[in-house]
Design a protein around this nucleic acid. Structure first.
Lengths: 206, 206
DNA sequence: ATAGTTAATGACTGGTGAGTCAGTAATGTC
DNA sequence: GACATTACTGACTCACCAGTCATTAACTAT
């Protein structure tokens, strides 16, 4: 019929599989949600057989947790890291890097993780704790730190700290949820976040 | 063994069943989410057999849509209605009834509906549209109306309208999501909303 | 080459749950 | 009381899918 193929049917790639599977799973979860995603779909996306998935992840739930942690460490960790090492004035930091960071979150994989946490979180409390400690607590901490610094430098007045750091993030949250639910309905989310930062700065300044 | 029971095994209650089933379904969805809820669970909660559910709702998806619409009309409709008929000054309205409304939303069934929309919305676009028109658009409209009135009366300055009504609701949104994910971690959500309203009023006032 | 190791396959199983429907009994009507 | 109507039951089907495992074939060492 034809010349014998010297192409092997598959290659063994022990090193890369876990990451590839996690990426495929993330894409699948993003599209259909956790419950509606079949392990078979994930395998197809990753270009492997269903069985192989189970060599690297014991259960579907294991895979789920790995996916969330994977996104968290890959994205947020570095971003928050950068942010912590700047030495801008408090005001410039809040208006600059923080605002930029906020603007890009609603369209990032973090939004997908939030969706997954909202729908599946109640059945994975350890995952929720992990996310709280590694993302939320650190994020809020970073903001609080910059407000504190602003007070120390006299840029902000003494009782500026009464404003909870959550207030900075509220419009980001709304933008994220808006996009998750009403993907098509337009909303100038950047404008929203800018207004909030300006408003807060006006309140904080001495 | 005993005196013959004259108690019938069941009563026919054609009128009440649909509502009872919807209530049971809402409770079940709230607890376990849409995908993880079995029709059998819903039936047990409603005190009926599984088969009867299908007499009143053709499919599980039908039931889901009915549940969401049911909650929406029963709760939000009346609330927004009340709000629209007050004749307080703009400032008093925003600080009073609006704030009160916002404070109780994160703990109300609306939060559950939001959770369901976030996780199942993408597969039910018509439901999303329904929700947008009947809740979101009307809610935002009501706020915009009060800001406009404030400008007309000279309470707020001319360009107060540049502030999107979404900004009022952002902390409410954050509080809601926070509770949905981190039910146990405390957060003074009332304080958050109060600060935001005060901040916005400070910006709006002439 | 050859044998040994193990990454990878894919057919299979067991459990589950949405949706069906033949039968039952509550209620209405005369 | 007898008959007709239909709300309601519960056992059943059938498709689907997480997880298993015997087998295959890609790689490695010698």
């Amino acid at each position: 019929m034809s010349i014998m193929s010297s192409q092997p049917k598959y290659q063994r790639r022990k090193e890369d599989r876990p990451q590839e599977i996690a990426d495929a799973a993330f894409a699948a979860f993003a599209e259909k949600g956790y419950a509606a995603t079949r392990i078979d779909d994930v395998a197809k996306r990753a270009g492997i057989s269903k069985g192989l998935t189970y060599l690297y992840y014991k259960t579907k739930e294991d895979l789920f947790k790995a996916v969330v942690k994977n996104v968290v460490v890959r994205r947020v960790d570095t971003l928050i890291g950068n942010v912590e090492s700047t030495n801008l004035s408090s005001e410039d930091f809040l208006r600059g890097p923080l605002l930029d960071f906020m603007k890009q979150v609603p369209g990032s994989p973090i939004a997908i993780v939030i969706r997954l946490l909202i729908s599946e979180g109640p059945r994975h409390p350890d995952l929720v704790d992990y996310y709280y400690e590694n993302v939320v607590a650190r994020g809020l901490g970073a903001i609080r730190q910059f407000v504190t610094r602003g007070v120390e430098r006299g840029e902000f007045h003494r009782d500026a700290l009464q404003y909870q750091p959550h207030l900075f993030l509220a419009p980001m949250m709304l933008s994220m949820i808006w996009r998750l639910i009403f993907a098509d309905k337009p909303l100038d989310t950047d404008q929203l976040m800018e207004s909030q930062i300006e408003m807060l700065l006006a309140q904080l300044k001495a």
